[in-house]
């Protein structure tokens, strides 16, 4: 193992992946289904953050909004417009669902940027579930709304007839790769950023390079703030794009 090998050399110890370890909060027992772990803690904090912003922030219902209410309304308008523009007007019924995904991902990403925190969205377990939820929703909605016509998504009617079977195979493969790329993109981005920061932090132990290392960490942190938002945005907008396919499968 790489970490062990470097650990033996003394001084320079890299544990870039240790920040992703799931630990029980109380005691040292094994991690069972209902064990209260650091996952629970940070997901609970995510819920609290979402509730603070979206429920308590808007509790005054003022016509001229305060700071919190402005941000809440901004998030609402942002996602609502995205759903309407990308997925179409008839997708507005899915707006609470998409809003839930967006709020969860964006807050989990930002909370993960707090030093010593645990990033729930950097785990494939989390993002795979999110992506599968989207995939299953899209597939089920597609078949319920369009019946067998949903399969027209894979039959590119604008292509020459000879090419269509080949294109259909490609389309089917790309359709099933969707949840994979959807989930790995989010988790991979966050994991990569956090691991890189940890690697730079490992270099900070050497006095000569530590100023460079601190600068690099700062720069990476800035990039990670951007990435946190952009990945949440991308996840949401791709959900909308897939939903559009389900509602209007004609190519």
């Amino acid at each position: 193992m790489a970490t062990e090998a470097q650990g033996e050399e003394g001084g320079l110890v890299f544990h870039p992946m240790d920040q992703f370890i799931v630990k029980p909060l109380f005691g040292d027992g094994p991690v069972g289904l209902f064990t209260i772990t650091n996952v629970t803690l940070w997901m609970a904090l995510t819920v609290i953050a979402v509730v603070l912003l979206m429920v308590l922030g808007t509790s005054k219902r003022s016509t001229i909004p305060g700071r919190m209410q402005s941000v809440g309304e901004l998030a609402y308008g942002f996602i609502y417009k995205m759903v309407e523009d990308v997925a179409g007007k008839d997708a507005v019924g899915f707006f609470p669902y998409i809003m839930t995904l967006f709020m969860f991902i964006v807050f989990a990403n930002f909370l993960g940027l707090i030093p010593m925190s645990f990033t729930t969205t950097s785990h494939f377990a989390v993002t795979v579930v999110l992506a599968l939820l989207v995939f299953l929703t899209v597939t089920i909605v597609g078949f319920v709304k369009n019946g067998a016509g949903f399969l027209g998504l894979f039959w590119v009617s604008s292509a020459p007839l000879a090419l269509r079977p080949i294109l259909a195979v490609i389309e089917i493969i790309s359709y099933f790769v969707r949840p994979v790329s959807h989930s790995i993109r989010l988790a991979g981005n966050l994991m990569a950023g956090h691991a890189v920061i940890k690697v730079f932090a490992g270099f900070a132990a050497i006095a000569v390079v530590s100023p460079v290392s601190v600068l690099a960490i700062t720069a990476m942190y800035g990039l990670e703030v951007l990435v946190s938002f952009i990945q949440a945005y991308v996840f949401t907008i791709l959900t909308c794009v897939y939903l559009k396919d389900a509602l209007h499968p004609s190519h």
Partner: peptide, 25 residues
């Protein structure tokens, strides 16, 4: 660790969905 994470994720999503769809939105 997957079952634990998935369980708590589902709980979290359900709670957020409830708060958003019943109250906030």
């Amino acid at each position: 660790w997957w079952p634990n994470q998935i369980f708590w994720l589902i709980v979290t999503l359900v709670v957020i969905f409830f708060f958003l769809s019943r109250i906030a939105l």
